[in-house]
Design a protein around this nucleic acid. Structure first.
Lengths: 142, 142
DNA sequence: ATCTACATTATAATAATTCTAAACTGTTGA
DNA sequence: TCAACAGTTTAGAATTATTATAATGTAGAT
């Protein structure tokens, strides 16, 4: 209950009207110990279950993109066939398990800072992301 | 002409029957000074123009995937909305210009080797790729 | 030249995402 | 408190990228 109130405030601050769908989405996304990765479909399922009623796909897309634009979610590109999002918006890298299609966060100690020596005139660096693809040891590479 | 012959041999070595569509695709992809990046749609257009006749989308998809599986093309994930391929199959990283949606190769000197300190038991690393997103200096981040 | 297996093609099917237009609901202010 | 407006939600249609299908075509062996 108190948590709902927090999300209502948060959404207001972001200029997003706190509808029940958005508040529920925030609970599902941010009301947890650890950050996590999800696809839009994952999220629709989770919210529908928590609310005991359907939520429109379009609403989930809209709100996810709104939260992404505000910096509360980050999109992660792995394959072109699915979009993954991450509630951990800090700069960090990922392992991707090609066997299980699971994303795993790297923390700061897993990979040394990346040193970019090239710079493109007139452009500034927005992000630097490392993706490490792993697979079972006794299996051919993709 | 001589070049065609080369591609015919190459395709045979790969176990791919050298049809005229595949030979033309190889010319378009590999018969050039520098490696380059393309989407499936780019490629369909390029081949259709070079051949002065249509080529089926399905054929392009099939052959691109065949060449990818054989290691002559590499897929690059940037956004989920498009698949980019690269004729440069060596290990290298990319800049992505968010303004122009252009991909730019990094060569070995642009980024120091990435040191991965984490390892996941029973899994081996298949690839380590860095994507540096850049955008115009006087513009908000995506 | 003929045959056969593999390729190509147009088209249909699927999947992810975005659009649309009508119905609904926070919020503001009288 | 409540009417009114602007922003939201929704179902379903539209769009886009990709894959599947099944009929036709063709490379390569005999």
């Amino acid at each position: 209950m108190v948590k709902n109130r927090n999300f209502i405030e948060k959404l207001r601050e972001l200029g997003l009207r706190p509808t029940k769908q958005r508040v529920k989405m925030c609970e599902v996304l941010f009301n947890r110990e650890k950050t996590f990765h999800f696809t839009i479909n994952d999220l629709v399922k989770m919210i529908s279950e928590e609310m005991n009623e359907k939520i429109s796909l379009a609403t989930v897309y809209n709100t996810v993109h709104a939260l992404e634009k505000k910096g509360y979610l980050k999109e992660i590109s792995i394959n072109s066939d699915k979009s993954y999002f991450d509630t951990n918006t800090s700069v960090h890298h990922h392992f991707y398990d090609e066997d299980t299609q699971e994303l795993i966060d790297c923390d700061g100690n897993d990979i040394d800072p990346i040193n970019i020596k090239k710079n493109i005139t007139g452009k500034k660096i927005n992000s630097v992301e490392v993706l490490v693809k792993v697979a079972s040891d006794n299996q051919n590479q993709k």
